[in-house]
Simulated scan of single mutants.
Amino acid sequence: MQGKGIIWQIPAVILAAVLLLMAVQISPAHARFTDTDSSAMAMTAARIPAPAANTVAVTKSCDSFLWFGQAKISVSNFTAVAYANYHELKVIDPDGVVQFTGDLSKSSGKSYSSGVQNLANLSGTWTYQIRGYYKVPNSTNAWTGQPLTGTLNCP
């Protein structure tokens, strides 16, 4: 007869647990934060300008003799531009092909000579560009400045 006593106790325990849970109010936690702060992050962007024409000394010539000639472009003096840590001379032939790229901090990077060629190969407008770059340290990235552009016309 003991089994009958347990059977009615189980529903009574469940009913008591349900009534107990209904009596307890469960509410979510509420919190309010009213602190404010502002921060101004200082940032600047630099634009690397083109070298000023009056700060650069360039000599250029198209020397010819009979059917042969030679194009020459040399930078004898230049002033570094703001924000740049590297300066370059680039020479482009009349067909638009870059023939020379030189580091202006080295004497070998300041002069270009086409070598003696047939005049037909030299004929046209040669272009040179002088510009500053900011080469990011320990990286292959660089910011490119605006170029100072000039021309050399060979007959």
Score class of each variant (00 low, 15 high):
Phe65Trp: 02
Ala16Pro: 02
Ile92Leu: 04
Gln9Pro: 01
Ser76Asn: 14
Cys62Glu: 00
Met1Arg: 02
Ser76His: 09
Asn85Cys: 09
Phe68Arg: 03
Thr55His: 04
Thr34Pro: 00
Ile48Tyr: 15
Val18Phe: 15
Leu15Val: 13
Ile6His: 00
Lys106Ser: 07
Asn118Ala: 05
Val91Met: 01
Ser123Arg: 06
Arg47Met: 12
Pro137His: 06
Trp8Ala: 12
Pro49Val: 08
Gly69Cys: 08
Lys4His: 06
Ser38Asp: 05
Ser111Val: 06
Val116Gln: 10
Ile26Asn: 09
Asn118Lys: 04
Lys4Arg: 13
Leu21Thr: 07
Ile7Ala: 15
Lys110Trp: 11
Ile92Thr: 14
Phe68Asn: 10
Ser38Glu: 12
Lys106Met: 10
Val58Ala: 08
Ala52Asp: 15
Gln9Leu: 12
Pro49Tyr: 15
Arg47Trp: 10
Thr79Ile: 03
Trp126Phe: 03
Asp35Val: 13
Val58Lys: 10
Gln2Ser: 05
Asn138Ser: 06
Cys62Trp: 02
Ile130Cys: 05
Pro155Val: 01
Gly102Ser: 07
Thr59Ile: 14
Ser113Met: 11
Ala71Lys: 02
Ala46Lys: 15
Phe33Ser: 05
Pro155Asp: 03
Val116Ile: 14
Ala57Met: 13
Thr101Val: 12
Val56Ile: 11
Ala71Glu: 01
Ala40Tyr: 15
Asp95Ala: 12
Gly132Asn: 09
Phe33Leu: 14
Lys60Gly: 02
Lys60Leu: 04
Phe78Thr: 14
Tyr83Gln: 13
Phe65Arg: 01
Ile10His: 12
Ala82Asn: 15
Asn54Glu: 15
Gly3Arg: 11
Tyr83Gly: 05
Ala12Leu: 15
Asp35Arg: 15
Val81Ile: 08
Arg32Tyr: 11
Ser123Thr: 06
His30Arg: 14
Phe68Ile: 09
Ser74Glu: 15
Phe100Asp: 01
Val136Phe: 07
Asn85Leu: 07
Ala29Ser: 08
Tyr86Met: 08
Cys62Thr: 02
Ser27Gly: 02
Gln70Tyr: 03
Ile6Met: 09
Ser108Asp: 13
Thr36Cys: 00
Pro94Thr: 03
Gln146Pro: 01
Val13Arg: 00
Val136Glu: 09
Lys90Asp: 03
Leu119Thr: 13
Pro147Gly: 00
Tyr134Ser: 13
Leu89Val: 11
Ala120Leu: 06
Gly96Trp: 04
Ala50Cys: 04
Val13Ala: 14
Val75Phe: 07
Pro49Gln: 11
Cys154Pro: 00
Gln117Asn: 05
Pro137Arg: 14
Gly3Asn: 07
Val136Trp: 08
Asn138Gly: 01
Thr44Cys: 00
Arg131Ser: 06
